[in-house]
Design a protein around this nucleic acid. Structure first.
Lengths: 188, 188
DNA sequence: CGATATACGGATTCGGATTCCGATTCCGCT
DNA sequence: AGCGGAATCGGAATCCGAATCCGTATATCG
Protein backbone atom coordinates (compact mmCIF):
# COMPACT_ATOMS: atom_id res chain seq x y z
CA UNK A 1 0.00 0.00 0.00
CA UNK A 2 1.64 3.17 -1.20
CA UNK A 3 0.99 6.37 0.63
CA UNK A 4 -1.62 7.87 -1.62
CA UNK A 5 -1.86 11.09 0.33
CA UNK A 6 1.67 12.12 -0.52
CA UNK A 7 1.60 11.22 -4.21
CA UNK A 8 1.44 14.10 -6.61
CA UNK A 9 -1.78 14.22 -8.66
CA UNK A 10 -1.50 12.94 -12.21
CA UNK A 11 -0.82 15.74 -14.66
CA UNK A 12 -3.91 15.08 -16.74
CA UNK A 13 -5.99 15.21 -13.59
CA UNK A 14 -4.63 18.61 -12.73
CA UNK A 15 -5.19 19.83 -16.26
CA UNK A 16 -8.77 18.63 -16.23
CA UNK A 17 -9.45 20.24 -12.91
CA UNK A 18 -8.31 23.52 -14.36
CA UNK A 19 -10.46 23.11 -17.43
CA UNK A 20 -13.54 22.34 -15.38
CA UNK A 21 -13.01 25.30 -13.07
CA UNK A 22 -12.45 27.62 -16.01
CA UNK A 23 -15.51 26.38 -17.88
CA UNK A 24 -17.63 26.67 -14.75
CA UNK A 25 -16.47 30.24 -14.11
CA UNK A 26 -17.33 31.19 -17.67
CA UNK A 27 -20.72 29.49 -17.72
CA UNK A 28 -21.86 30.77 -14.33
CA UNK A 29 -20.94 34.30 -15.30
CA UNK A 30 -22.84 33.98 -18.55
CA UNK A 31 -25.94 31.98 -17.66
CA UNK A 32 -26.26 32.37 -13.93
CA UNK A 33 -26.96 29.54 -11.57
CA UNK A 34 -29.10 27.62 -14.02
CA UNK A 35 -26.20 25.81 -15.64
CA UNK A 36 -26.16 22.09 -15.14
CA UNK A 37 -23.28 19.88 -14.22
CA UNK A 38 -23.57 18.19 -17.61
CA UNK A 39 -23.15 21.57 -19.34
CA UNK A 40 -20.03 22.30 -17.35
CA UNK A 41 -18.66 18.89 -18.26
CA UNK A 42 -19.37 19.37 -21.93
CA UNK A 43 -17.89 22.86 -22.00
CA UNK A 44 -14.78 21.53 -20.29
CA UNK A 45 -14.58 18.69 -22.79
CA UNK A 46 -14.86 16.14 -20.05
CA UNK A 47 -17.36 13.61 -18.68
CA UNK A 48 -19.62 14.36 -15.73
CA UNK A 49 -17.77 11.76 -13.72
CA UNK A 50 -14.62 13.82 -13.99
CA UNK A 51 -16.34 16.96 -12.83
CA UNK A 52 -17.58 15.08 -9.79
CA UNK A 53 -14.17 13.62 -9.01
CA UNK A 54 -12.69 17.11 -8.67
CA UNK A 55 -15.72 18.79 -7.14
CA UNK A 56 -17.74 16.21 -5.24
CA UNK A 57 -20.81 18.40 -5.32
CA UNK A 58 -22.44 21.16 -7.27
CA UNK A 59 -21.99 23.32 -4.24
CA UNK A 60 -18.30 22.48 -4.00
CA UNK A 61 -17.83 23.62 -7.57
CA UNK A 62 -19.60 26.86 -6.86
CA UNK A 63 -17.49 27.41 -3.77
CA UNK A 64 -14.34 26.90 -5.82
CA UNK A 65 -15.50 29.50 -8.31
CA UNK A 66 -16.33 31.82 -5.44
CA UNK A 67 -12.90 31.41 -3.93
CA UNK A 68 -11.31 32.59 -7.15
CA UNK A 69 -13.44 35.70 -7.05
CA UNK A 70 -12.50 36.45 -3.48
CA UNK A 71 -8.86 35.92 -4.28
CA UNK A 72 -9.21 38.47 -7.04
CA UNK A 73 -10.92 40.93 -4.74
CA UNK A 74 -8.11 40.42 -2.27
CA UNK A 75 -5.49 41.10 -4.90
CA UNK A 76 -7.30 44.25 -6.00
CA UNK A 77 -7.66 45.46 -2.44
CA UNK A 78 -3.94 45.07 -1.86
CA UNK A 79 -2.79 46.62 -5.09
CA UNK A 80 -5.34 49.35 -5.65
CA UNK A 81 -7.13 50.22 -2.44
CA UNK A 82 -4.43 50.14 0.18
CA UNK A 83 -2.46 52.55 -1.97
CA UNK A 84 -4.96 55.35 -1.39
CA UNK A 85 -3.68 57.65 1.28
CA UNK A 86 -7.14 58.80 2.33
CA UNK A 87 -8.74 56.13 4.49
CA UNK A 88 -12.21 56.84 3.33
CA UNK A 89 -11.08 56.51 -0.25
CA UNK A 90 -9.44 53.21 0.55
CA UNK A 91 -12.57 51.80 2.12
CA UNK A 92 -14.74 53.11 -0.68
CA UNK A 93 -12.43 51.53 -3.22
CA UNK A 94 -12.68 48.21 -1.45
CA UNK A 95 -16.45 48.21 -1.09
CA UNK A 96 -16.87 49.42 -4.64
CA UNK A 97 -14.86 46.49 -5.88
CA UNK A 98 -17.16 44.14 -4.05
CA UNK A 99 -20.15 45.87 -5.55
CA UNK A 100 -18.76 45.70 -9.06
CA UNK A 101 -17.80 42.06 -8.84
CA UNK A 102 -21.22 41.05 -7.55
CA UNK A 103 -22.95 43.17 -10.12
CA UNK A 104 -21.08 41.66 -13.03
CA UNK A 105 -21.26 38.15 -11.74
CA UNK A 106 -24.83 38.21 -10.54
CA UNK A 107 -25.24 34.65 -11.72
CA UNK A 108 -22.39 33.34 -9.65
CA UNK A 109 -23.34 35.44 -6.66
CA UNK A 110 -26.87 34.19 -6.75
CA UNK A 111 -25.74 30.61 -7.05
CA UNK A 112 -23.38 31.06 -4.15
CA UNK A 113 -25.97 32.66 -1.95
CA UNK A 114 -28.48 30.00 -2.85
CA UNK A 115 -26.02 27.21 -2.14
CA UNK A 116 -24.20 28.65 0.87
CA UNK A 117 -26.65 31.12 2.33
CA UNK A 118 -23.81 33.56 2.57
CA UNK A 119 -21.27 34.99 0.21
CA UNK A 120 -18.48 35.73 2.61
CA UNK A 121 -15.06 34.14 2.20
CA UNK A 122 -13.50 31.69 4.61
CA UNK A 123 -10.06 30.17 5.00
CA UNK A 124 -6.80 31.87 4.09
CA UNK A 125 -8.30 34.40 1.70
CA UNK A 126 -10.91 35.33 4.28
CA UNK A 127 -8.25 35.81 6.92
CA UNK A 128 -6.19 37.99 4.60
CA UNK A 129 -9.21 40.11 3.83
CA UNK A 130 -9.86 40.60 7.52
CA UNK A 131 -6.23 41.62 7.97
CA UNK A 132 -6.58 44.24 5.28
CA UNK A 133 -9.72 45.52 6.93
CA UNK A 134 -7.89 45.75 10.20
CA UNK A 135 -5.14 47.77 8.59
CA UNK A 136 -7.59 50.22 7.05
CA UNK A 137 -9.30 50.61 10.40
CA UNK A 138 -6.02 51.39 12.15
CA UNK A 139 -5.29 54.12 9.68
CA UNK A 140 -8.76 55.52 9.90
CA UNK A 141 -8.73 55.61 13.66
CA UNK A 142 -5.40 57.33 13.82
CA UNK A 143 -6.13 59.94 11.19
CA UNK A 144 -9.56 60.62 12.67
CA UNK A 145 -11.53 59.50 9.65
CA UNK A 146 -13.40 56.85 11.59
CA UNK A 147 -15.07 56.57 14.95
CA UNK A 148 -12.93 54.83 17.51
CA UNK A 149 -15.36 52.01 18.11
CA UNK A 150 -15.57 50.74 14.55
CA UNK A 151 -14.56 47.08 14.25
CA UNK A 152 -13.76 44.79 11.35
CA UNK A 153 -17.03 43.05 11.98
CA UNK A 154 -18.68 46.28 10.92
CA UNK A 155 -16.76 46.37 7.67
CA UNK A 156 -17.65 42.75 7.15
CA UNK A 157 -21.33 43.54 7.62
CA UNK A 158 -21.19 46.46 5.26
CA UNK A 159 -19.41 44.35 2.70
CA UNK A 160 -22.16 41.77 2.96
CA UNK A 161 -24.76 44.48 2.54
CA UNK A 162 -23.07 45.90 -0.54
CA UNK A 163 -22.87 42.42 -2.01
CA UNK A 164 -26.56 41.77 -1.37
CA UNK A 165 -27.69 45.13 -2.75
CA UNK A 166 -25.53 44.72 -5.79
CA UNK A 167 -26.42 41.17 -6.71
CA UNK A 168 -30.11 41.77 -6.19
CA UNK A 169 -30.09 45.12 -7.96
CA UNK A 170 -31.95 46.61 -4.99
CA UNK A 171 -30.57 50.05 -5.58
CA UNK A 172 -27.52 52.18 -6.24
CA UNK A 173 -24.77 50.57 -4.23
CA UNK A 174 -22.41 53.48 -4.80
CA UNK A 175 -24.81 55.62 -2.85
CA UNK A 176 -25.17 52.95 -0.22
CA UNK A 177 -21.43 52.90 0.28
CA UNK A 178 -21.48 56.65 0.83
CA UNK A 179 -24.21 56.38 3.41
CA UNK A 180 -22.47 53.56 5.25
CA UNK A 181 -19.15 55.39 5.33
CA UNK A 182 -20.88 58.52 6.62
CA UNK A 183 -22.26 56.30 9.34
CA UNK A 184 -18.73 55.37 10.40
CA UNK A 185 -17.53 58.97 10.71
CA UNK A 186 -16.81 60.40 14.13
CA UNK A 187 -19.94 61.88 15.67
CA UNK A 188 -20.09 65.68 15.64
CA UNK B 1 -71.25 29.76 -21.77
CA UNK B 2 -71.29 31.36 -18.36
CA UNK B 3 -68.73 33.99 -17.56
CA UNK B 4 -66.19 31.97 -15.64
CA UNK B 5 -64.06 34.95 -14.73
CA UNK B 6 -66.78 36.46 -12.58
CA UNK B 7 -67.75 33.29 -10.76
CA UNK B 8 -66.87 33.17 -7.10
CA UNK B 9 -64.41 30.38 -6.21
CA UNK B 10 -65.93 27.31 -4.70
CA UNK B 11 -65.94 27.40 -0.94
CA UNK B 12 -63.92 24.22 -0.53
CA UNK B 13 -61.33 25.59 -2.93
CA UNK B 14 -60.94 28.70 -0.83
CA UNK B 15 -60.74 26.67 2.33
CA UNK B 16 -58.08 24.42 0.88
CA UNK B 17 -56.06 27.33 -0.34
CA UNK B 18 -56.03 28.67 3.18
CA UNK B 19 -55.02 25.34 4.63
CA UNK B 20 -52.16 24.98 2.20
CA UNK B 21 -50.88 28.48 2.82
CA UNK B 22 -51.07 27.99 6.56
CA UNK B 23 -49.31 24.65 6.47
CA UNK B 24 -46.61 26.05 4.20
CA UNK B 25 -46.02 29.03 6.48
CA UNK B 26 -45.67 26.71 9.45
CA UNK B 27 -43.39 24.21 7.72
CA UNK B 28 -41.12 26.79 6.15
CA UNK B 29 -40.69 28.53 9.47
CA UNK B 30 -39.86 25.25 11.16
CA UNK B 31 -37.75 23.37 8.62
CA UNK B 32 -36.48 26.06 6.31
CA UNK B 33 -36.56 25.80 2.57
CA UNK B 34 -35.94 22.08 2.49
CA UNK B 35 -39.60 21.16 2.82
CA UNK B 36 -41.07 19.41 -0.16
CA UNK B 37 -44.34 20.07 -1.89
CA UNK B 38 -45.53 16.64 -0.83
CA UNK B 39 -44.89 17.52 2.81
CA UNK B 40 -46.89 20.71 2.49
CA UNK B 41 -49.71 18.75 0.90
CA UNK B 42 -49.70 16.16 3.63
CA UNK B 43 -49.58 18.74 6.41
CA UNK B 44 -52.49 20.56 4.80
CA UNK B 45 -54.41 17.32 4.53
CA UNK B 46 -54.61 17.66 0.78
CA UNK B 47 -53.14 16.09 -2.36
CA UNK B 48 -50.17 17.55 -4.21
CA UNK B 49 -52.42 18.27 -7.14
CA UNK B 50 -54.43 20.65 -5.00
CA UNK B 51 -51.34 22.46 -3.83
CA UNK B 52 -50.34 22.96 -7.43
CA UNK B 53 -53.75 24.19 -8.49
CA UNK B 54 -53.57 27.04 -5.99
CA UNK B 55 -49.85 27.71 -6.30
CA UNK B 56 -48.69 26.68 -9.76
CA UNK B 57 -45.10 26.50 -8.64
CA UNK B 58 -42.97 26.00 -5.59
CA UNK B 59 -41.81 29.52 -6.08
CA UNK B 60 -45.36 30.83 -6.24
CA UNK B 61 -46.10 29.20 -2.90
CA UNK B 62 -43.02 30.76 -1.38
CA UNK B 63 -44.00 34.14 -2.76
CA UNK B 64 -47.43 33.81 -1.20
CA UNK B 65 -45.89 33.04 2.17
CA UNK B 66 -43.57 36.00 1.71
CA UNK B 67 -46.46 38.32 0.98
CA UNK B 68 -48.06 37.42 4.28
CA UNK B 69 -44.86 38.32 6.06
CA UNK B 70 -44.67 41.64 4.32
CA UNK B 71 -48.26 42.35 5.16
CA UNK B 72 -47.45 41.69 8.78
CA UNK B 73 -44.44 43.98 8.66
CA UNK B 74 -46.66 46.63 7.13
CA UNK B 75 -49.20 46.29 9.90
CA UNK B 76 -46.49 46.52 12.53
CA UNK B 77 -44.96 49.55 10.88
CA UNK B 78 -48.32 51.33 10.91
CA UNK B 79 -49.30 50.43 14.42
CA UNK B 80 -46.02 50.50 16.26
CA UNK B 81 -43.44 52.48 14.36
CA UNK B 82 -45.35 55.44 13.03
CA UNK B 83 -46.49 56.12 16.57
CA UNK B 84 -42.97 57.06 17.67
CA UNK B 85 -42.62 60.78 17.70
CA UNK B 86 -38.87 60.71 17.16
CA UNK B 87 -38.17 60.04 13.48
CA UNK B 88 -35.00 58.16 14.13
CA UNK B 89 -36.86 55.92 16.56
CA UNK B 90 -39.55 55.31 14.00
CA UNK B 91 -37.08 54.27 11.33
CA UNK B 92 -35.13 52.13 13.77
CA UNK B 93 -38.36 50.44 14.81
CA UNK B 94 -39.19 49.67 11.22
CA UNK B 95 -35.78 48.32 10.27
CA UNK B 96 -35.57 46.33 13.47
CA UNK B 97 -38.83 44.65 12.63
CA UNK B 98 -37.43 43.62 9.30
CA UNK B 99 -34.35 42.28 10.98
CA UNK B 100 -36.32 40.31 13.51
CA UNK B 101 -38.66 38.79 10.97
CA UNK B 102 -35.83 37.67 8.74
CA UNK B 103 -33.88 36.34 11.67
CA UNK B 104 -36.73 34.22 12.94
CA UNK B 105 -37.78 33.05 9.54
CA UNK B 106 -34.36 32.39 8.12
CA UNK B 107 -35.72 29.35 6.34
CA UNK B 108 -38.38 31.26 4.49
CA UNK B 109 -36.11 34.19 3.80
CA UNK B 110 -33.48 31.96 2.33
CA UNK B 111 -36.02 30.17 0.19
CA UNK B 112 -37.38 33.48 -1.03
CA UNK B 113 -34.01 34.87 -1.89
CA UNK B 114 -33.01 31.66 -3.61
CA UNK B 115 -36.23 31.59 -5.58
CA UNK B 116 -36.66 35.29 -6.32
CA UNK B 117 -33.20 36.72 -5.97
CA UNK B 118 -34.69 39.49 -3.93
CA UNK B 119 -36.83 39.74 -0.86
CA UNK B 120 -38.55 43.00 -1.44
CA UNK B 121 -42.33 43.23 -1.67
CA UNK B 122 -44.24 44.20 -4.76
CA UNK B 123 -47.84 45.09 -5.46
CA UNK B 124 -50.17 46.80 -3.02
CA UNK B 125 -48.25 45.91 0.12
CA UNK B 126 -45.06 47.16 -1.47
CA UNK B 127 -46.70 50.43 -2.42
CA UNK B 128 -48.05 50.90 1.08
CA UNK B 129 -44.64 50.29 2.56
CA UNK B 130 -43.15 52.89 0.25
CA UNK B 131 -45.85 55.31 1.35
CA UNK B 132 -44.96 54.76 4.97
CA UNK B 133 -41.31 55.31 4.15
CA UNK B 134 -42.22 58.53 2.44
CA UNK B 135 -44.11 59.72 5.48
CA UNK B 136 -41.20 58.97 7.79
CA UNK B 137 -38.88 60.83 5.46
CA UNK B 138 -41.10 63.91 5.44
CA UNK B 139 -41.09 64.03 9.18
CA UNK B 140 -37.38 63.50 9.37
CA UNK B 141 -36.64 66.21 6.88
CA UNK B 142 -38.81 68.73 8.59
CA UNK B 143 -37.57 68.05 12.11
CA UNK B 144 -33.98 68.00 10.93
CA UNK B 145 -33.29 64.40 11.83
CA UNK B 146 -32.39 63.46 8.27
CA UNK B 147 -30.38 64.96 5.46
CA UNK B 148 -32.52 66.72 2.90
CA UNK B 149 -31.44 64.48 0.04
CA UNK B 150 -32.49 61.16 1.54
CA UNK B 151 -34.97 59.29 -0.65
CA UNK B 152 -37.22 56.29 -0.14
CA UNK B 153 -34.93 54.35 -2.42
CA UNK B 154 -32.31 54.74 0.28
CA UNK B 155 -34.59 53.31 2.92
CA UNK B 156 -35.43 50.50 0.54
CA UNK B 157 -31.76 49.71 0.11
CA UNK B 158 -31.10 49.79 3.81
CA UNK B 159 -34.07 47.53 4.39
CA UNK B 160 -32.67 45.08 1.88
CA UNK B 161 -29.31 45.23 3.59
CA UNK B 162 -30.79 44.59 7.01
CA UNK B 163 -32.70 41.64 5.61
CA UNK B 164 -29.60 40.16 4.02
CA UNK B 165 -27.45 40.62 7.11
CA UNK B 166 -30.10 39.17 9.32
CA UNK B 167 -30.98 36.11 7.29
CA UNK B 168 -27.36 35.25 6.66
CA UNK B 169 -26.30 35.95 10.22
CA UNK B 170 -23.46 38.08 8.87
CA UNK B 171 -23.35 40.22 11.96
CA UNK B 172 -25.27 42.26 14.49
CA UNK B 173 -28.01 43.92 12.52
CA UNK B 174 -28.97 46.19 15.39
CA UNK B 175 -25.57 47.75 15.12
CA UNK B 176 -25.88 47.94 11.37
CA UNK B 177 -29.12 49.85 11.70
CA UNK B 178 -27.38 52.34 13.97
CA UNK B 179 -24.58 52.86 11.49
CA UNK B 180 -26.96 53.29 8.58
CA UNK B 181 -29.11 55.78 10.45
CA UNK B 182 -26.01 57.73 11.43
CA UNK B 183 -25.21 57.81 7.76
CA UNK B 184 -28.52 59.53 7.06
CA UNK B 185 -28.02 62.31 9.60
CA UNK B 186 -27.38 65.82 8.41
CA UNK B 187 -23.69 66.43 7.83
CA UNK B 188 -21.96 68.53 10.47
C1' DC C 1 8.35 -2.55 -21.44
C1' DG C 2 4.98 -4.22 -17.90
C1' DA C 3 2.33 -3.41 -13.49
C1' DT C 4 -0.79 -1.02 -11.18
C1' DA C 5 -2.61 2.93 -9.06
C1' DT C 6 -5.44 6.75 -10.86
C1' DA C 7 -8.32 9.01 -13.73
C1' DC C 8 -11.87 8.94 -17.31
C1' DG C 9 -16.66 8.75 -19.33
C1' DG C 10 -21.22 8.28 -19.50
C1' DA C 11 -25.03 4.97 -18.56
C1' DT C 12 -27.72 4.44 -14.53
C1' DT C 13 -29.84 5.45 -10.15
C1' DC C 14 -32.28 8.47 -7.21
C1' DG C 15 -34.86 12.34 -5.45
C1' DG C 16 -38.16 15.67 -5.86
C1' DA C 17 -40.88 19.11 -8.61
C1' DT C 18 -44.58 19.23 -11.92
C1' DT C 19 -48.24 17.18 -14.86
C1' DC C 20 -52.23 14.43 -15.98
C1' DC C 21 -56.58 12.53 -15.73
C1' DG C 22 -60.35 9.73 -13.79
C1' DA C 23 -63.19 10.28 -9.56
C1' DT C 24 -65.56 13.47 -6.63
C1' DT C 25 -67.81 17.56 -4.96
C1' DC C 26 -70.00 21.99 -5.07
C1' DC C 27 -73.18 25.55 -7.49
C1' DG C 28 -76.88 27.41 -10.17
C1' DC C 29 -81.13 26.30 -11.98
C1' DT C 30 -85.51 24.20 -12.58
C1' DA D 1 -85.25 18.72 -3.53
C1' DG D 2 -82.84 16.93 -7.48
C1' DC D 3 -79.95 17.33 -11.87
C1' DG D 4 -76.17 18.60 -15.07
C1' DG D 5 -71.80 19.75 -15.49
C1' DA D 6 -68.08 22.75 -14.39
C1' DA D 7 -64.45 23.20 -10.95
C1' DT D 8 -61.80 20.54 -7.64
C1' DC D 9 -59.56 16.83 -5.78
C1' DG D 10 -55.93 13.21 -5.18
C1' DG D 11 -52.08 10.81 -6.15
C1' DA D 12 -49.93 7.88 -9.72
C1' DA D 13 -46.96 8.79 -13.54
C1' DT D 14 -43.60 11.76 -15.81
C1' DC D 15 -39.66 14.63 -16.23
C1' DC D 16 -35.44 16.68 -15.10
C1' DG D 17 -31.13 17.13 -13.20
C1' DA D 18 -27.77 15.91 -9.44
C1' DA D 19 -24.93 12.26 -7.87
C1' DT D 20 -23.13 7.39 -8.23
C1' DC D 21 -20.99 3.25 -10.23
C1' DC D 22 -18.01 0.58 -12.68
C1' DG D 23 -15.69 -1.13 -16.78
C1' DT D 24 -12.07 1.05 -19.72
C1' DA D 25 -8.08 3.94 -20.62
C1' DT D 26 -3.75 6.06 -19.23
C1' DA D 27 -0.06 8.10 -16.54
C1' DT D 28 3.75 6.93 -13.54
C1' DC D 29 7.21 4.05 -11.51
C1' DG D 30 10.64 0.31 -11.49
Amino acid sequence: MSNAASRRPRTDAERNRGRVLHAATELFAQHGDQVQMADVAKAAGVGVGTVYRHFPTRQALIEAVAEQRFAEILRYAREECLARSDTRQALACFFARIGRVHEEGRGVSGAIEAALGDTEPRGQVGADLLAIGEEMLDRGRSDGTLRADVKVADLYMIAGAVAAISRNAVGDWHRFIDIALDGLQPRP
